[in-house]
Computed example of a mutant assay.
Amino acid sequence: MKLRRWVATAAVAVATVATLNSLPASAGHPYDPTDQSLRNLGLRHNLYVGTAVDMDALADPDDPQYRQIVGDEFSTVTAENVMKWESLEPTRGTYNWGPADELVSFARQHGQRVRGHVLVWHNQLPGWLTSGVADGSISNDELRDLLHKHITDVVRHFRGKIWQWDVVNEAVSDPWDNPPTLHYKGFWAEHLGSGYIADAFRWARAADPQALLFYNDYNIEAFGSGDPANDKTRFVYDMAKDLRSRGVPIDGVGSQGHLGTQYGNYDTLQVAAALKKFTSLGLATAFTEVDVRSQMTDGVQAGESAEINPRLQASAANFSILLQACLSERHCLSFTVWGFTDKHSWVPGTFDNPPEGLATIYDENYQPKRAYNVMRADLIYAGPPYVLPRVAQRPHR
């Protein structure tokens, strides 16, 4: 769907005061007060601002603007799909490293760090694996060995090139699932039990002692009831606490940050409180897949400003809430949007009843939305005493 070009660049005054020039920047990438990109403004706080990357779009010679923005605006990149198991090993025993290696090479050329996504997930698995388990030709014992081999092969291949790995992704159910009591869900829990989570972190650490190892999930931006039976954030917190108590080398928890303007969502203080709770365990945090989708009503699709403007404002507010919370917590190392342009967003293809979209910080014509400039303003005007430089995380052994 192509919308009318109704998004104009928001007018945000960005006068940078002299005191900002002396604030820390990441080693090798000094802060440049004349550069108002997200990546450069994040350097004031040693915060890496990133995006998920669609490799087909990155390689498209007819769409050079996509490639330019990825390189100019962001200091860390995540493979949207090409590091998932079905992409890396579509045929058993034969790896296709090409597209993922291309992203790593692009990041190196542009002075960016790479988040590896994802080692263990119940979705986007290769057909040979799932069909083999279904027909009994792959036993549970062999499945565990295959998982061990996959993690080892992938992490060793990228050893020294990945800053953060999403080791285990979305292992916990939601309160609206059946049964409603929160539990470990999906393909891996069904066949290997919950012990695969600790195994995955140990195998990843053995393959790369230096990468930061994250658990990644959605709907964990803030605490709810506090009851682990129905509060997913509390369930994940208790899981992470248990893993740390048993010496499992988990370094961080990633909160995906997939939000929608039709929901109540959270305020900055609620989100900051959740981040601080996780960091009290000795863990780093990150926002790993941020987008804010809206329902595409008839009025939105017709270009009616009365329908569009409230959604743009609500979207910008939600991006800002998550970014402000991340800035407030020194162990929040990175803030990644899940694609930066509506032209290549996953949302319309996934949420279609009712249709949803408008989820990113640029429109389909690569024009920045209000959300983009609100994020820039947050990065510009944040500072001591409430926003301090990031605390580097050392990998747990």
Rank of each mutant, 00 (worst) to 15 (best):
D174H: 10
I162Q: 13
A10G: 14
M375N: 05
R397M: 09
A204E: 12
L143K: 09
A18T: 14
D251F: 07
G247P: 03
D177M: 12
W121R: 05
V236D: 10
W203D: 13
D35I: 06
N40R: 11
D231W: 02
A306L: 07
N373D: 15
T285M: 14
E73W: 00
F340S: 11
N318P: 00
H157G: 08
G160R: 08
G257T: 04
I162K: 07
G224P: 02
E73H: 00
N81W: 07
L146F: 06
P209R: 13
N353W: 02
W163S: 07
D363A: 05
N21S: 12
L283H: 12
Q68M: 01
L58V: 09
G226V: 02
V374C: 03
K276P: 00
F319N: 10
A8Q: 15
A204Y: 04
G357V: 02
G116S: 03
F278S: 06
R202I: 09
N365R: 03
A229V: 12
D291K: 00
S194Y: 04
A325M: 10
R44W: 05
Q256H: 11
G28V: 08
L3R: 13
G116C: 05
Y386G: 03
A198Y: 06
D72N: 12
L125K: 06
G224T: 08
L88E: 11
A272K: 14
H45S: 08
S320E: 15
E329V: 15
F187G: 04
T16K: 07
A359N: 13
R159D: 05
G186C: 08
V53Q: 07
W128N: 03
E89F: 01
V82T: 14
K276F: 00
N169A: 06
V114M: 06
A314W: 03
N169I: 02
V12S: 09
G132V: 01
D251L: 03
T285K: 05
V7A: 13
V17W: 14
G136V: 04
Q36T: 12
N230M: 01
R311I: 03
A25T: 08
T181Q: 15
Y218A: 11
T360E: 15
Q324T: 14
G254S: 09
Q109L: 15
P126L: 05
E142K: 10
A204I: 04
H183L: 02
H157S: 06
A79L: 08
A382I: 04
R370W: 14
H331N: 10
F187Q: 06
G127W: 03
A27N: 11
I138Q: 00
T336I: 12
P249D: 10
E170D: 14
S139P: 00
H122K: 10
P179A: 06
A302C: 12
W128M: 03
L88S: 04
A189N: 11
A316W: 01
Y184A: 09
S320K: 12
R4G: 15
Y196N: 07
E221L: 01
T268M: 03
F158Q: 12
D231K: 04
A317V: 03
G111K: 12
A286P: 00
H150S: 01
T297C: 11
H45V: 00
H396D: 10
W163A: 08
D378E: 15
T268N: 02
N216M: 01
